[in-house]
Design a protein around this nucleic acid. Structure first.
Length: 566
RNA sequence: GGGCUCGUAGUAUAGUCUGGACAGCACAGGGGCCUCCGGAGCCUCUAACCCGGGUUCAAAUCCCGGCGGGCCCGCCA
């Protein structure tokens, strides 16, 4: 509804500007604390036409004609600003629309564009840790946003099943006595595997002979030895399964797992190397094939193959990207900031291969510990599993404190909904590029206006609705300022999704969710619903129902469960 | 050393791309609110744009130079 209002304002303002004898490309429309939309276009015109902004604003204002059929109520001028306000019909239509569309409210028209969104793609060397934990949550939230924005989207987890790290694990299972390792921290395959990974990398750095042996394992794998291939596959499958179980807990799922090795096996990596080899960027240095990318502003040579002919990760990633582009119109990757150089090299290589399109990349900064960054190899990590367990425990204490009368299984259930929601919300509310430092006290401090705040608003709405029947209603009876503010906030939802989708900024949705909950809570505090007289009561019930719908939809966008009670 | 990135109250953040009206929110601290549908709530006070230049009618926002944190600069992934 807000988009319709904005378009209405745009066209009438454009006409007014022209009628006043001015010409401008940008109408400078923005949301404002003073009005529903404000234009600062008078500033833009003042230097061009050598008149004061106030005078220009007034002249334009005098030419404004509001069409009969529109969502614009009125306009006014305050100093150099021209302000616009929504009308009654806008509010009424919003309520009707939300009531009618229900859980589809906010969904944008289907677009004829297919997106592949790659996220997480964690190394199958051990359990997921908090350091890279933002990736699945940012990625999954983005996927939900884009789906609502009307795109045909597929999420992919790229499995790095090749390479030395897997060889090290396979070597470890053959050569390390399990009795010399500490017990796995959990009965999950990823926790078992990581013990061998850590020990093997330790031994590689201590003893050059081990390094040679691990390279032999890798060579066997690369040469296509069926037995070795099978063992690699088993290790990776187990590890991914463990990671998948963890991600399931925070409501993150994937449409497809894409195995890196498939691009080696089907020959597409070789094909790419052959193509690149023939370009003027390529050269052979000590047997290694490299690309000179200075033309693309990259000083660093891009090494495509090692001198022993073995391909490197980024080279194989080119094949994956070509495959993605042949299957989608838009390719989006959620990646850690450490991948920036590799991605720049990859994009340059794609250009050399005459691929017009380039992937859109959302880079996020790592979550580090106060003492430094996390590392699976060195065992300096906070496992995501541990964080989730602690969040659950902490949430249970809160539930137990507030609702001691609830049956035990319900308390557990609510704790899970609240705990997992808090983890997701706290992760996604911060802009991806900002660095985060992990501290237990802060991670588990369920900030008042975090996920529980929004879930609570939803539960309150449900509580009211459970005590009454929805009936016919007249939305025009909703005139109190708290009611009007709530309606306006809800009307904003679809345009919020549009901008979060086009800018790939999931944190915008988190901010919106909090604002919506706050607006609802204010309404709840001051406006009685059940006690109101019948006509008003019916209208307010409809409004509460709308709030319930939008709160549920926005929580769904964040991958957070909307409880009916908590 | 070079490149990228971040720097907003005591803490943690929104806003920065696309410059405009009081820099929004929370935690912590001060003061209030249950004759009322769930107080995980509401109201209120205190408190911030790293430093220095520049562009502009207008700079948290754009440009240049510092300073500080993070990341990258492997024939690892």
């Amino acid at each position: 509804m807000f988009l319709e209002f904005k378009n209405g304002v745009k066209s009438l303002l454009q006409k007014a500007v022209e009628a006043a004898g001015y010409e401008v490309a940008d109408l400078c429309l923005e949301t404002s604390a003073y009005a529903d939309l404000a234009s600062s276009v008078a500033f833009k015109l003042s230097s061009k036409y050598k008149e004061s902004p106030q005078i220009i604003a007034t002249k334009i204002f005098e030419k404004i004609q509001i069409p009969k059929k529109s969502y614009v109520d009125k306009a006014d001028v305050i100093g150099p600003y021209i302000n616009f306000y929504v009308n009654r019909e806008f509010l009424d239509e919003t309520i009707k629309q939300i009531s009618a569309e229900g859980e589809n409210y906010g969904s944008l028209p289907k677009k004829d564009e297919r997106i592949i969104l790659e996220h997480t793609s964690a190394n199958p060397t051990g359990p997921l840790h908090v350091g890279r934990g933002r990736n699945p949550i940012i990625g999954d939230t983005l996927a939900r946003i884009l789906r609502r924005a009307g795109y045909d989207i597929e999420t992919q987890f790229y499995v790095n099943d090749m390479g030395k790290q897997i060889a090290a694990i396979v070597w470890g299972y053959d050569n390390v006595d399990p009795n010399t390792l500490s017990k796995p921290e959990r009965d999950k395959p990823d926790h078992d595997i990581v013990r061998y990974y850590r020990r093997a990398t330790e031994l590689i750095s201590e003893d050059p002979k081990v390094d040679v042996e691990v390279n032999e394992v890798l060579a066997k794998y690369e040469s296509g030895d069926p037995k070795t291939i099978k063992r690699f596959k088993k290790v990776v499958e187990n590890c991914i399964e463990g990671q998948r179980q963890t991600l399931e807990r925070v409501n993150v799922h994937y449409d497809r797992f894409v195995w890196e090795s498939q691009f080696v096996r089907d020959g597409s990596v070789d094909e790419i190397i052959e193509k690149l080899k023939k370009t003027r960027y390529a050269s052979l240095r000590d047997g290694a094939l490299t690309l000179d990318l200075r033309e693309f502003g990259l000083e660093k040579d891009f090494v495509l193959t090692r001198s022993d002919g073995i391909t490197l990760y980024t080279t194989r990633d080119i094949a994956y990207h070509l495959w993605k582009f042949s299957n989608a119109d838009v390719v989006i990757n959620v990646l850690g900031e450490d991948q920036k150089l590799a991605m720049a090299q990859l994009q340059a290589a794609l250009k050399i291969l005459n691929i017009e399109k380039e992937p859109k990349i959302v880079f996020y900064s790592f979550v580090s510990l106060p003492e430094g960054r996390m590392s699976t190899r060195e065992g300096i990590v906070v496992d995501l599993d541990d964080l989730l367990d602690e969040a659950l425990e902490r949430a249970y204490i809160e539930v137990d404190k507030r609702r001691p009368e609830l049956p035990e299984d319900r308390k557990r259930k609510v704790a899970e909904i609240v705990g997992m929601g808090a983890v997701r919300f706290d992760t996604v509310k911060v802009a991806p590029e900002k660095m985060m430092t992990f501290r237990w006290e802060e991670a588990l401090d369920f900030e008042k206006q975090g996920a529980p705040f929004i879930q609570y608003a939803h539960a309150r709405a449900c509580s009211i609705l459970s005590k009454a029947q929805l009936g016919d209603f007249d939305p025009s009876l909703l005139k109190e300022s708290y009611e009007v503010e709530l309606i306006k906030k809800m009307a904003f939802f679809p345009s919020m999704i549009a901008s979060a989708a086009s800018d790939l900024k999931p944190n915008l949705i988190a901010t919106y969710a909090r604002e919506l909950a706050e607006t609802f809570n204010q309404f709840y505090r001051y406006i009685p619903v059940l006690r109101a007289e019948e006509d008003i009561r019916n209208a307010r019930l409809a409004l509460v129902n709308c709030a319930r719908i939008v709160l549920a939809n926005v929580l769904d966008l964040l991958g957070i469960i909307a409880p009916e009670s908590m």
